[in-house]
Design a protein around this nucleic acid. Structure first.
Lengths: 132, 132
DNA sequence: GTTTTTGACAAGAACGGTTCTAATCTGATA
DNA sequence: TATCAGATTAGAACCGTTCTTGTCAAAAAC
């Protein structure tokens, strides 16, 4: 796959499995989610490999790290700019592809060189709403 | 102080010290920041008390919890709605008092009952920029 | 005014996610 | 085939947070 090649890293079987899992599971999995899934294919898989691979991919810009939970990080294969809606009950995360132009006051732009922004919406999804 | 009274909790000396620290340190301190500072006044202070108090204050709506870092939570005495600009180098957080109206597409509002939103800007502050 | 009850505090253990360490393995290159 | 850098592994260490247990102090009940 083209994206894989662009990463310009050694594509070991473990790394491929991690990448494939991320590509096929767009529900923003955590390191543990990835570990559990990939361990089925590679029983000797360790957390170190998951974290090492994630860091390598991060540095190459192949994935995004979501800091939406405080307890654990979640990962996103989709690196095109987008925002998220998070269900505060089940922690489901839904993507939102919209480019919001949000003006910043001058006193901020004088003080900060802006790099990027995230907009996060919190609410309850229909499922969690039903079972009140 | 008026806000303290409105919290409607038993204002023990330890809790007062924590509240005072939060009121006087608007740099969004972490639990450890609070612990270290208040321990000077109460050498027997424990983390349990800090966390217990923070949770009580949270439940009473007296403070806000910022989930900007993944590793640790940070706390905000200011509960009026506002957003943040975060320096990716020194993790300084600056407040931004602006009420952005951000429209959500219908397919989202059908699926989610929106509760609130956060807008976070990331960049480098002038200080960190200087020492490139 | 003493006893009882309630809730806050303290110390440290436990926990969960992440990072580090040291040893081993793999695979590309010479 | 030998070399060597980099990847993998298992488990220890780490850090922030939560939990547990016992103690203490203030308020309520008697």
């Amino acid at each position: 796959m083209e994206k894989y090649r662009q990463l310009n890293i050694k594509l070991t079987p473990q790394r491929l499995a991690i990448l494939d899992y991320l590509r096929d599971n767009t529900n923003h999995p955590s390191a543990e989610d990835i570990f559990k899934a990939v361990k089925k294919k590679f029983p000797t898989m360790s957390f170190a490999t998951v974290y090492n691979t994630l860091e390598t991919l991060l540095n190459k810009g192949g994935i995004h790290e979501l800091k939406i939970e405080t307890g654990k990080k979640r990962y996103d294969y989709d690196v095109t700019p987008h925002h998220h809606i998070i269900c505060i009950k089940c922690r489901k995360i839904v993507d939102l592809y919209k480019d919001y132009k949000i003006p910043l006051p001058d006193e901020i732009t004088r003080e900060f060189e802006l790099i990027n922004k995230t907009v996060e919406f919190y609410g309850t999804c229909r499922n969690c709403k039903k079972r009140h």
